[in-house]
């Protein structure tokens, strides 16, 4: 679905709920746009189930851009083979104050939880919620919990968060209602680097005990 968002952006949406299929299609479409290119598009932002395209209305007509988008959507964009990253995490303790509670809610010991959590690599579902923040998914159904009832006003950069069948990593200090299960030294935001973040949507991340 191609939607107008203000007078300088278009949102291409692949679903109204977060699921694997919509997410893969959004990432694949963004990759196809990046490799094929559409004249006049100045920014491509893949998200959980949509892709935002910014264009310069002083240069391009929205009708032309929308036409090109529809042509590209007719093809079957293949998901880009993402880079693979290994991320060391200190689970539990001060680094992960919610680990025991999370394991308990899933009727697992903390050790069992960590083993299952790290068993399979996750895909980076989306970036961009905050500088360097990434959502990784999906865990199997048996490893799915809702968010906490309360929001922590601030968790430090490098926090490893768990909720909604996903594991997320923060790269700046942010408030969150997700469970904090660990901490990583992997820093996905460096303002003096280009690009300033390393993980991209579609990349693969494997967690290991640091």
């Amino acid at each position: 679905m191609v939607q107008t968002l203000g007078d300088s952006t278009i949102l291409v949406r692949f679903g109204s709920r977060l699921d694997e299929n919509a997410n893969r299609r959004a990432i694949g479409f963004a990759a196809a746009l990046e490799s094929d290119g559409i004249a006049g598009i100045v920014e491509i932002v893949p998200s959980l189930v949509s892709v935002l395209l910014r264009y310069d209305p002083l240069i391009s007509r929205h009708q032309d851009i929308e036409g090109e988008i529809r042509l590209l959507l007719h093809g079957v964009p293949e998901e880009r083979a993402g880079a693979a990253h290994r991320i060391g995490v200190r689970f539990g303790g001060e680094a992960g104050p919610d680990l025991e509670e999370v394991a308990g809610l899933l009727r697992l010991s903390p050790e069992e939880f960590v083993a299952r959590h790290n068993a399979l690599p996750l895909r980076v579902l989306a970036t961009g919620f905050a500088p360097g923040f990434v959502y990784g998914g999906f865990h199997p159904e048996a490893l799915t919990l809702p968010r906490r009832d309360t929001v922590r006003p601030l968790v430090p950069a490098g926090s490893v968060l768990f909720a909604a069948g996903q594991t997320a990593i923060t790269a700046t200090d942010i408030p969150t209602g997700w469970h904090v299960i660990g901490h990583t030294d992997f820093a996905n935001f460096a303002p003096d680097a280009e690009p300033p973040t390393r993980l991209r949507a579609g990349d693969s991340i494997s967690f290991e005990v640091a």
Binding site: S8, R17, V45, S47, L48, V49, R54, F129
Partner: peptide, 11 residues
């Protein structure tokens, strides 16, 4: 609340 999407200034 909905699944999140990118937002733009003026939304």
């Amino acid at each position: 609340s909905l699944v999140s999407d990118p937002v733009v200034v003026g939304d």
